[in-house]
């Protein structure tokens, strides 16, 4: 879709996004009281990613934009991933060094 002709999204899509976000929020609240062990954080993150994805794709219209716009939108997330990954490679390998006494 050309940027000169903005995509007109039907109202029902916005309501669907709203409903998804409400359900997602309720799910976040619900899982916060459950103990999934080591899966606690991944589960919470998965719900958050779905919610963010719905907002970016539908509410922010990225789904109907050119590939270039999609690439720029994805770029932000890829760079966020590199920030996390390269920071965690420090935190996760700190214990690997032998401690000499």
């Amino acid at each position: 879709m050309s940027s000169n002709h903005p995509h007109i999204t039907p109202l029902k899509t916005y309501f669907a996004v709203f409903a998804t976000l409400i359900v997602g929020t309720w799910l976040t609240y619900w899982v916060a009281y459950k103990d999934f062990g080591w899966l606690n954080t991944p589960v919470a993150m998965a719900i958050a990613i779905v919610k963010a994805g719905v907002v970016v794709l539908y509410f922010m219209h990225v789904k109907w934009q050119s590939k270039l716009t999609m690439m720029f939108a994805a770029g932000g997330f890829i760079w966020l991933f590199t920030l996390f990954a390269f920071t965690l490679q420090d935190y996760w390998t700190r214990d690997w060094m032998p401690i000499y006494k």
């Binding site: 590199t82 390269f86 490679q89 420090d90 935190y91 996760w92 390998t93 700190r94 690997w96 060094m97």
Partner: peptide, 16 residues
Amino acid sequence: FVWGHHMFVTGQSTYA
């Protein structure tokens, strides 16, 4: 991807 070279003496993991 090079920012950690500012942090060699900060307690950053040697592997990083």
